[in-house]
Design a protein around this nucleic acid. Structure first.
Lengths: 217, 217
DNA sequence: TAAAAACCTGTCCAGTTGGCCAGTTTTTTG
DNA sequence: CAAAAAACTGGCCAACTGGACAGGTTTTTA
């Protein structure tokens, strides 16, 4: 065959190429699924975007559905990493402020993930039923208890903790999910750091004031 | 014979069936598009849901794209009907309270419309660019001016009017768009009148307090 | 180094879809 | 009432898609 001596400049460690390809495919799939929806995104288009032949995508993910679920699971992991921001520390204002800012930041750094998650929920969450019931609901229950404790201790105005969290979720994720609308209205091409900071300031101040707290700093 | 009204081209009985069929098709299309997305919704499925043969759908709407655009236009009209709720009346608290409640009500009565609109925006608003730029942006500018006037008159806390409206939009529409998530977390099968009222109360009170106002009543 | 395991891809195929068309039925018109 | 227009529909098809598969290549293992 061909000379095979000094051409091993690339280290063919098992798993390295695999991880790289998986990453490429998952990234490409995320984009395509957001842009075209599940049915509208073709494996061919995903493969093209990833720079791989179509059959290779099928090698890593047996079916389109599997690939879609894998993308969603990646998102869930990302979401869960930010789950425990809301702890029963001493100062509600600080905790809520930090929670809101993390959410805004996440919308800024991972807009595609937020969008795909939103689309899945809008369509009735056919692939996330179990996640919602078995993971998200228990988490909410715990966090609601924390907020209720704050209310009981007179540390903040009496509010329904569930709706407070819905308010935080919706208002923060809005800037990722409705990016096209927000940017058009504000006549901007894309988000900038300064705009994101102002959004976080505004939301933190408004929401905290809404529950009788003053934003820190 | 002695037709003096040249505009009698409009037919009575024929138009009735036509309108009825159009209504059926548009309704069926709305459901299917929300459930499966644009690419995932088949004309056959829409026809079945409407109780008509597939070719009949193509008779009313030449292409799938035309049908989709027609559904979106219906939604825009619905949205615009509720546009002028925000007027520069005397009392900001009352106006904002009414605006928030209308939005919650709209989410409750027309969840599918809200969802489809959301999906379109999430996917980059390919069919709504013109609407956002030519209709929504001017409207926002006008309403922002009203809010700024209130602020200048010391009637409410100084806030960015654009982000205030984003906050109202996002928090109210959340209950329509993320219905599957909200209901799962609250362990409910569907929304009830009382729940909607509580949501409206909560959002109105929180958001108004957030801008230094007290909700009326 | 040779066998085995893992990885890669060109090619083919069956199923589905949007939408066209030609022919039929119903309604309107003169 | 007859002709024309509008409304309707079954059947057809070209295009595309997910995915199977067999044969090839590269890497690991013994």
């Amino acid at each position: 065959m061909a000379d095979s001596s000094a051409e091993t400049k690339r280290t063919y460690r098992r798993g390295k190429i695999r991880d790289q390809n998986l990453e490429r495919i998952l990234g490409a799939a995320r984009e395509e699924f957001v842009l075209k929806g599940f049915a509208g995104a073709s494996i061919q288009a995903i493969a093209d975007r990833a720079g791989l032949p179509k059959a290779n995508v099928h090698y890593y993910f047996k079916t389109k559905s599997n690939l879609y679920v894998a993308v969603l699971e990646e998102i869930i992991i990302l979401w869960n990493d930010h789950f425990d921001e809301l702890r029963a520390e001493d100062n509600p204002a600080e905790v809520l402020d930090r929670f809101i800012r993390r959410k805004v930041e996440l919308s800024y750094t991972h807009p595609q993930s937020s969008k795909l998650f939103a689309m899945e929920i809008i369509q009735g969450a056919p692939h996330l039923r179990d996640y919602l019931r078995n993971d998200l609901r228990p988490w909410m229950r715990k966090k609601a208890a924390v907020i209720e404790a704050w209310v009981a201790a007179g540390k903040m105005a009496p509010v329904d903790p569930y709706h407070l969290i819905f308010l935080i979720w919706s208002s923060t994720q809005h800037y990722a999910d409705f990016e096209a609308q927000v940017l058009t209205i504000l006549n901007r091409a894309e988000y900038e750091r300064s705009m994101i900071d102002r959004i976080a300031d505004f939301l933190s101040r408004s929401i905290l004031a809404g529950v009788g707290l003053e934003a820190p700093r």
